[in-house]
Amino acid sequence: MEEMSDHRLSIGTGRAEGPDEGGPAPAPGTRPLGRRLFLGIVGAGAIGTVFGQQLQSWVGSALSSLANPAGGGLAALLPGADRFRLYTVTSGFPEVHRAAYRLSVGGLVSNPVTLTYAELLSLPRTQLTRDFQCVTGWRVPGVHWAGVLLRDVLALARPTAAAKAVAFGSYDGVYTESLTLSEAHRSDVLLAYEMLGKPLSTPHGGPVRLYVAPMYGYKSAKWLSSITLVEQAKPGFWEQQGYAVQAWVGRSNGRNDAPIA
């Protein structure tokens, strides 16, 4: 019993690893295949991490024929597929029916308005096709959007001279975002009601979401409920978690993604 304990201990501390170290000699032909598998997986993981962006783009284009970037289909669940990852910061997605949808525009404006879904659709329609880039690294290439330019809606409400920024509220009751007034006047900032040729679905922020093409996805608040003109914007939901308020793709958050133009 005592002798066995010693034997076991010597194995446990690894002193018996080599045949000439006094431990039991392995049978001829014994190979550390288990350890090689372990080290191989760890090595492959490291290489994959270093070259993963390239790998990801190859796999993404290979899967693009199978995957529906809006998130449907099993192929979209495969790792590396170019697809939206659906984020919500509250429980579930707020369900707002198009007939009941209202967008209020107020704050420092001379003409506060509340727009219905139909009224938004009757405003001049603008289309954009841009990559959608998340600050966590995923990008969905060439997403087609349709909606109303934010500046057209702001023009209806007529901001006062004191208004310097635009704050956005969401039907989830929690999410907030903001833009400066000059950012809000860009021609690639939409109130989007269509994505990839279909009315914007609830998971993607429907009936209407903000879409700020040149900025990371967190700027594009979903389930848009209110637009408030203010003197100075407060940091939005993720910005309070440390993300940059000026969320330019490739020029913020320490990232160097290719800019979206």
Binding site: G45, G48, T49, V50, F51, G52, Q53, L55, Q56, V59, P79, G80, T136, G137, W138, N253, G254, R255, N256, D257
Partner: peptide
């Protein structure tokens, strides 16, 4: 990994997904 190059963070996400499967 906020301090790391973005390519490695994308790569890490990809490898994490594949390894999880």
């Amino acid at each position: 990994g906020n301090f790391m190059p973005v390519g490695m963070r994308t790569g890490a996400t990809f490898v994490h997904d594949v390894s999880a499967f």
